[in-house]
Design a protein around this nucleic acid. Structure first.
Lengths: 392, 392
DNA sequence: CAGAATAGTTTTGACATTGAACAAACGTGA
DNA sequence: TCACGTTTGTTCAATGTCAAAACTATTCTG
């Protein structure tokens, strides 16, 4: 099927670390130069790829130099994000460049969805207006449990329940309503793919995103594990100690009660709304309460994550969100706990990393995810382009 | 691509609950009757499908009756299994019928791999000799951690480490060395597929296999979750209580220390080698120690499994192996614990089931898995069959 | 027994891929 | 400087698969 090959060629072009030639794509996809060339022509005509001038200092040798192909800058996607303290919209093209970015801050705890999603549509409209590219889709990252049909079932920190985004959010610039996804799942996309379609350093890892609560995503082979209903990755409520403190979810001893920002602040003897940087500073300064709180969080993280690694065999942990700031503080104890409690640690030592600094990671990941949907089926956008029949 | 359609037609034929006709396969796969018919012809010629007489009491109506297609009985696979107390070999064909089955009992704790694998080759040879079908492959289920290249890294209850099966096991009847897999992963195959290629009641579930230790497999979309190295599903060593009893693995409070058969027997006040049925009987008879042990196991299972469900969103639990026999005893507490500790329980109530009684489930699942590999790529077996060109 | 309905086959045409040949563009070395 | 090798990209005929439609076969219905 042509659609399959089209997708494979485009994927190979985006995955290449440096702009490849038609011939390179042919060998990468396993087809002949003839077919690869024809497919590339269609992709260029559709704006998904661009022929870049061979000016750059790329490696040269004998033979005819090829024309190098870069991701097209004419197609882009809209990524949206709602947090407890801001709404944001970014527009990203196939090169991964953030072409526009708008944020509105606020306090959205216990807010009404109508108002917040109205604000979101506002920043989204402004972001799109700035960009000279066709926006192929929109995706929204929400800090909560989302069902398969675009309904947010529950976002505890926003205080939202059963929000049908498509029905509540005003339409943006003629685009269809955004696809809705989990904030951690979409944030993880920016780690598995530093740019759309370009694989990053890790393809298998656990992404732990500390925000108001603790969200997680298990990434396997570059794709977030979804599970039966798409609710996989709820690491915040894994039981760390069955006799531990009560949690708002109705259980006891959940990870969030040890490593959640609020719990951490209280245990450190600070205001419940203290910022993570304050907790980190106090711990680094040797304040006993803060240091003990961080240590306890590290061990709790180790217990919860060892369960994850035992069950899904993903020995790389990426700490993101607010957990980035205490990453180096928790790493030693976390690693030690993992090594002790993970059965396969002997053969695959656990790795703990801090996510690269990336503003609005969830929104950017949402845009990438939407672009990935395009890359998986380029034929849809190019249409049934028939072979150029000479008029006659 | 023709290979893809060939696989789709065969998969549809196997998935159908009742022998479908060519026309039914055409609509099921979305192709036209013409193509489906041609592909079916090739599959019948290759022995992968059989035209069954339309004698049976299948639904009849107006129109020309079609010829119904059943899985071919001419191709089969060899499934092997090594436990602490037996080795077994089964030969299964595409209909799912066990055509031959041989078992040799023994005590293989702390055994030497050479001897046991020799016994295994022996029963395998006898099983193959009985069957009049071409055996397309062999797969071996082992109770331990297996790497991607057919090496058993560690099977604690057998006492084996770093066993390269292909190098140690004598060849069986000219077959290539068996593919090696985890016992729980392969046992789970028989639950997701009651017959090769035929989807069962659940496509997403956690399979918990109690043998000497506790093995597990997380099945998503019919396929066991493999993870980065293929070691996913090690549920036996998920931490239930960080302050719990020491485990042989070096950690503390592992699930195996509560729900493993040995731990259960000791907690019930019986011999460490007591049979599960004895424990179950004692608990049912109201012996306090036994009842308390089972209750403790149920809660431990609930804590460990709630972590699994939170992380991978698979709300169906299937208890297999020795856990089958205490299934009804642990179910109430297990369900209650899951409901309390699983965040999404409100929207998807957990389900706990007992696996259907199936002798040598792991070996049968191993054979099925090998047949699935064939179904995924039927072209490999059929060869480059060219269109029937009339001689001339 | 005519007609409707469904199953399966044959034929024809469209289309994508392959393979080979060919033109284009560059470096190398005599 | 110029022939030669080398690599890129395109063109063209051949091949194979699928889709659409027409056609045959076989049953049930009235």
């Amino acid at each position: 099927m042509r659609a399959v090959n089209l997708a494979r060629v485009l994927a190979a072009a985006l995955a290449a670390p440096t702009p490849p030639t038609r011939a390179a794509l042919a060998t990468a996809t396993g087809t002949t130069r003839a077919t690869a060339s024809r497919l590339v022509d269609d992709l260029v005509a559709g704006g998904l790829l661009e022929e870049s001038a061979p000016d750059a200092g790329l490696p040269r040798g004998p033979g005819r130099p090829g024309t190098h192909l870069s991701p097209g800058r004419g197609v882009a996607a809209l990524g949206l994000q709602v947090d407890v303290d801001r709404v944001a919209a970014v527009v990203t093209d196939l090169t991964g460049a953030v072409r526009a970015s708008h944020v509105t801050e606020g306090d959205f705890r216990g807010s009404r969805p109508e108002g917040v999603l109205g604000l979101l549509a506002d920043v989204a409209g402004r972001a799109i207006a700035e960009v000279d590219a066709t926006v192929v889709g929109a995706r929204l990252a929400l800090p909560g449990i989302v069902d398969g049909r675009g309904v947010l079932l529950r976002a505890p920190n926003l205080g939202w329940s059963d929000v049908a985004v498509a029905a509540v959010m005003p339409p943006v610039d003629g685009l269809p309503a955004p696809v809705v996804g989990n904030e951690a799942d979409l944030g993880a996309v920016t780690v598995s793919y530093p740019a759309p379609g370009r694989p990053g350093e890790h393809a298998d890892f656990v992404y732990l995103s500390g925000a108001a609560g603790i969200g997680g995503s298990v990434v396997l082979d570059g794709a977030p594990l979804r599970g039966r209903h798409g609710w996989a990755g709820e690491l915040g409520h894994v039981t760390v100690d069955p006799d531990g403190p009560d949690c708002a979810c109705g259980s006891t001893g959940c990870l969030e009660q040890y490593a959640g920002m609020r719990a951490l602040a209280v245990a450190a003897g600070l205001e419940p709304t203290a910022r993570t940087s304050d907790i980190a500073r106090a711990a680094r300064d040797g304040e006993p309460a803060a240091a003990a709180a961080v240590e306890r969080a590290a061990e709790a993280l180790g217990i919860a994550l060892s369960a994850v690694v035992n069950v899904v065999d993903v020995p790389v942990i990426v700490l993101a969100g607010h957990l980035r700031e205490i990453g180096d503080l928790v790493r030693p104890t976390l690693l030690e706990t993992l090594t002790r409690r993970v059965l396969s640690a002997r053969w695959a030592p656990p790795v703990v990393e801090v996510a690269p600094q990336r503003p609005l990671a969830a929104a950017v990941g949402a845009a990438y995810a939407e672009l990935h949907a395009l890359v998986a089926d380029p034929g849809r956008r190019l249409g049934r382009r028939r072979t150029a029949t000479p008029a006659g």
